[in-house]
């Protein structure tokens, strides 16, 4: 009976936080065009625990802070990993940095199906064009996290079959969206708990 209300309240609570007015500059909202360099597997001491972030995509130190800037840096990192997962049709990296994110789960399934079907995506990477200030939830709330609204474009893409023949051709598209991040206090790391896109 009351579960809908409960979910409404839960949605509100999940989104609850302290509004932060940060001094974003134009540079801060410009996305990175490249991924961080991949981790070397042959050098350095043996790690004692799994490094934060997706395997093969080291998490930038700037993203390991529970601040609006840290949340924003993780968002850039997430988009980079998402693009890499998409272009490689490899769901694993995306899966490693998301939890309870329904749309992310569907994307991983989609990428897996593309890989299973031998299809290859050319283009189609996401580029953030605007990001709002991160809203932070209280660390003492027991559900520390952050959320941001944003706007992005998906560059034009083509999907090819195993023989290289064109299957589909998608023009550039834009969308508004919201991302919610959950903060892992012990690991000083984030996980994406919601990624919502509304195509324009």
């Amino acid at each position: 009976m009351g579960h809908a209300v409960g979910r409404l309240l839960a949605a509100a609570l999940v989104l609850a936080g302290v509004s932060v007015a940060s001094g974003c500059s134009e540079d801060r909202v410009r996305p990175s065009d490249t991924l961080p360099p991949q981790r070397s597997t042959s050098a350095g001491p043996t790690p004692t625990e799994d490094p934060p972030g997706a395997t093969g995509y080291p998490l930038p130190e700037a993203a390991r802070a529970y601040t609006p800037e840290g949340a924003r840096a993780f968002f850039d990192y997430f988009i980079a990993v998402l693009n890499a997962s998409h272009l490689a049709s490899d769901p694993v990296p995306l899966r490693e940095i998301t939890q309870g994110c329904e749309f992310c789960d569907e994307l991983t399934q989609r990428f897996q199906e593309a890989a299973d079907g031998g299809r290859r995506v050319v283009g189609g990477d996401l580029v953030l064009t605007a990001v709002g200030a991160a809203t932070m939830r209280s660390l003492e709330s027991g559900a520390a996290g952050a959320s941001m609204s944003f706007r992005l474009i998906q560059r034009a893409s083509q999907v090819l079959d195993t023989a290289g023949s064109l299957i589909s051709d998608t023009p550039e598209l834009s969308a508004d969206g919201t991302i919610e991040l959950a903060w892992l206090v012990d690991q000083r790391d984030w996980l994406v708990s919601l990624f919502s896109l509304d195509a324009q």
Partner: peptide, 8 residues
């Protein structure tokens, strides 16, 4: 055709 993009 299947949609393999993020936004379709």
């Amino acid at each position: 055709p299947p949609c393999d993009d993020i936004i379709c």
